[in-house]
Amino acid sequence: MTNSILKIDNLSKGFHAVRACENISLEINKNEVHALIGPNGAGKSTLIKLITGFLEQEYGKIFLDNQEISFLTPEERAQKGIARSFQVSSIINNFSVVQNIKLALIGKNKNYLDFLTNINLNKKLLKEAFYYLEEVGLNKKANELASSLSHGEKRKLEICIAISMAPKIFLFDEPMAGLDGESSELILQLFKKIKKRAPILLIEHDMDTVFSLADRVSVLDYGKVIVTGTVSEIKKNKTVKKVYLGTEH
């Protein structure tokens, strides 16, 4: 028995001549925040798409909780316990905030073939949705249209959708992008809280966030993991400084 929740073994994917991911191997352990950093085009988002099944790997294997999921569809992987946020907010804009959460709960509870129960009158579902909305501070906006939310609130809603799925692992793709300092801090605190429920694989460009949150960091460059280590190890690594961090950290 290993401690890892997600294990990636020699995962590779190319687009024509470009190798987006080349023999990537990673392990994400229980209760940890594992950050994935690297320059633009390093293959970070491709890796998230490969893990979630939105892209098919050329070779390599993915294990979730010691079970191979390499050939499952995105929806099967989500059912197994992978929850994600997208690089560009992907919520249902025409739904209210609470409807977006109800939708996620319907997916989690697998009752999407319920044709009879009126979800507007389902108090249990509403209570559960509000529990998660309160967690991210969106309960007061529950009945507002998702499209009317600010950028930061949309980010929070997307994270709330992921949390409500009670997954085995969270994959967050640049969740802080475009957020002001206050919103980033709120999400930072939220991540610190939810990492106890499930590990987080985090793609983030904001190094202050990464260094204050991550337990371990992997650095990607040209589709390859050049190093994995703790924050202090990464800060000291000369190759990382050269390809990504520069000298200020």
């Binding site: 929850a83 919520i91 249902i92 997916g107 989690k108 799925m165």
Partner: peptide, 16 residues
């Protein structure tokens, strides 16, 4: 209704 607007989101919550 969600499928009409965003199939990617529907897949990511575990529904085909």
């Amino acid at each position: 209704k969600a499928c009409k607007e965003n199939e990617e989101r529907v897949k990511s919550i575990g529904i085909n």
